[in-house]
Structures are given as C-alpha cells and as structure tokens.
Design a protein around this nucleic acid. Structure first.
Length: 188
DNA sequence: GGCCCGATCGTCT
DNA sequence: GACGATCGGGCCA
C-alpha cells in the first residue's frame, strides 16, 4: 500500500516545545515556490528554544521587538530571522499565543541522503528559498507546511545547542536533537 | 546616532 | 582550528 503523506494540523505545534522538537525529527518540511514547484526535505536536526527563561532564546526575559514578534504568535507559525548579515534561520513557533518558544530547524535530508545542500540552518533556508518575508506565516500552507513521512528515525540523539556560548549554563542544556542515522546532520 | 555582536558558512592553514 | 564576510538587532546615550 502506497504511503500518502498527511499535512500536520496546527495543534501538533501547540504543545510543549521539547516534545514538539523531538517529534519533528523525521517529518517532511515542504515549501511551495512562486512557480508552483515544491521543495522539501526530511527534518533530521533541530534545536529547542524554550522562551522567557532561556538565556539563549531571542525572547529571554520577555524581549519583544519587531523581529521577535512572530515568536509571540500561537504555535504553528513560522519565525525566520537574518543572522550574520547574510544567512536566514527558519523556526517553527510552538506552545500557545504569548508563550514565545520555538524550534530551530537545523538540517534536512534531501532525496539523495548524502546531499548536504540543506545540512545547516542557513543552507536549508537558501535551498528552500526561505527569507524573513516568510516569518509569521501559518504552517498550514500554501507556502510552507510540514507533513508525515514513512521514514521514521531509529535513534534520536540529543546534545548541546550550537553557537550559544554567550548563554551561560544554558549553552550546556541538551536541547539539540538529531537523527543519529542521517548523513545530513550538520554536526556530530 | 554609535557600538558591539550574532541560533552561520566557506575558505584557508 | 581560525578567520572574514556583511548588516540588522539590541542596547545605551
């Protein structure tokens, strides 16, 4: 019987952030371009950013600016920001409205599992064509959505988050999750 | 207005 | 392992 991918409902994202992060591993992130073509990849690496008490999170201590406004939306919206003046990072907003938490999508496995064109948060945005224009969108299409996959990860590993040395103890929190069996993970 | 620095990546040694 | 690119965000004045 053929596997028919099913689009995830918004309630999937409106749960506890760490649980959503783990559950996202193995699912398909899909983006439709203006010309109608769809680019997609299997999520193999994510990081949880758990809100106002997380010193690594953009909304630490309720920081709220035009950039982070999308994080205050209800779970199931996108949050895309520019980093180092040249790379975009795509996040899935989690939990409820006014609970500014999110999951950073760090790597996708493409059709060729050894293709590393989407192995990193900046690289996957470039590959999918995602920019800050795509921040604050609902993840129920037509532009961006996430659907089920018939390829579930065998082992989900956890580790420290990348690039958050400024965050004190929080730099050591094991909030990065990845598919141990994928060659498309950004770092081991 | 000014200053510092970043949830990265590619290149070079 | 080190470093530069490149520019907006965040914070202070």
């Amino acid at each position: 019987m053929k596997f028919v991918p099913k689009k995830l409902p918004l309630v999937f994202f409106q749960r506890e952030t760490i649980q959503v992060a783990r559950d996202l591993i193995g699912l398909q992130l899909c983006v439709r371009s203006n010309d109608g073509s769809v680019r997609q990849g299997r999520i193999v690496e994510v990081e949880a950013y758990i809100g106002v008490e997380d010193p690594a999170c953009h909304t630490y201590l309720h920081r709220r600016t035009s950039r982070t406004e999308a994080m205050y939306l209800s779970g199931g919206h996108s949050y895309v920001y520019l980093i180092y003046g040249m790379h975009n990072c795509f996040n899935v907003v989690t939990a409820g409205e006014g609970e500014p938490e999110a999951v950073l999508i760090r790597a996708l496995e493409l059709e060729d599992p050894h293709d590393r064109a989407a192995a990193g948060p900046g690289k996957l945005c470039r590959h999918l064509g995602l920019t800050r224009e795509d921040s604050g969108l609902l993840l129920e299409g037509p532009r961006i959505w996430i659907c089920e996959s018939d390829h579930r990860p065998l082992v989900i590993a956890s580790a420290e988050r990348v690039g958050v040395d400024y965050a004190g103890d929080a730099a050591f929190w094991p909030l990065r999750f990845f598919d141990e069996g994928s060659a498309a993970v950004s770092r081991r």
